[in-house]
């Protein structure tokens, strides 16, 4: 089920929410309970981990880039250098309450295996990703005849780290395939705002620029 908007944002606040945090990160953070243990896979410079820390979450991170890791550790965050594709296998079952993959799914080599590991390591998985079913992306391919560029996806096709794009519809199918239960889903529009009306899935797939899913293991 898609959640209803909890608060509305003005256009000026679109990219950054209260406290200056990225709205997609706030959406993710809202899904994590205080006191929980969370693993942020692909934690970048640690912005989400910091946000989670302020909310009483025991957060850990994995980050591929050396610069990102070193920046995080220098901030006092518990982050290891590693690769989502290869290193999740080293974590034991049920090690975390939440395993988060924020804007990283499309850059993994094996998204399905990564998602399966997330659901194994954590009781819940939270995945946010850019929706390749968005109307703007469809139009660029349909009418422009070129690989889409957006503010969120600025790379040229030959240098993009994003190798496994999917639409909201595609991701739902992957969830069904790996036996994940969709507990909550939130779509963000082109300004990074939560979309407010309750709508059918095809609508989100067309108008949501980003999506955030809260998943859990079935059974």
């Amino acid at each position: 089920m898609l959640s209803r908007l909890k608060y509305d944002l003005t256009m000026a606040e679109a990219a950054r929410g209260p406290g200056g945090a990225r709205v997609d990160l706030l959406v993710v953070a809202d899904m994590v309970q205080s006191g929980a243990r969370a693993l942020d896979v692909g934690c970048g410079d640690g912005e989400l981990l910091r946000l989670l820390e302020t909310r009483g979450v025991d957060g850990r991170g994995i980050e591929l880039s050396r610069e990102g890791v070193n920046e995080c550790v220098a901030k006092g965050l518990a982050v290891v250098q590693g690769d989502a594709d290869t290193d999740l296998a080293d974590y034991p079952d049920d090690a975390f309450d939440f395993v988060i993959l924020s804007q990283t799914l499309q850059a993994t080599r094996q998204p399905r295996i990564v998602l399966e590991h997330m659901l194994r390591i954590g009781r819940h998985a939270i995945v946010s990703f850019p929706n390749f079913g968005h109307w703007n992306i469809r139009l660029q391919l349909l009418l422009g005849g070129h690989m889409p560029h957006t503010d969120n996806l600025p790379y040229a096709w030959y240098e993009t780290p994003n190798i496994h794009f999917c639409s909201i519809k595609d991701f739902r199918q992957l969830c069904l395939l790996v036996g994940a239960r969709m507990e909550e889903a939130v779509a963000l529009n082109a300004w990074g705002r939560r979309m407010r009306l309750k709508m059918p899935w095809w609508f989100w797939n067309l108008f949501g620029e980003q999506a955030v899913f809260l998943l859990s293991r079935r059974g």
């Binding site: 290891v80 250098q81 974590y91």
Partner: peptide
Amino acid sequence: IVHALNAAGARVSFAEIT
């Protein structure tokens, strides 16, 4: 070391310095 610590559920940071 990090793999072992992760497997043990320890709180660990790991940085490789260039």
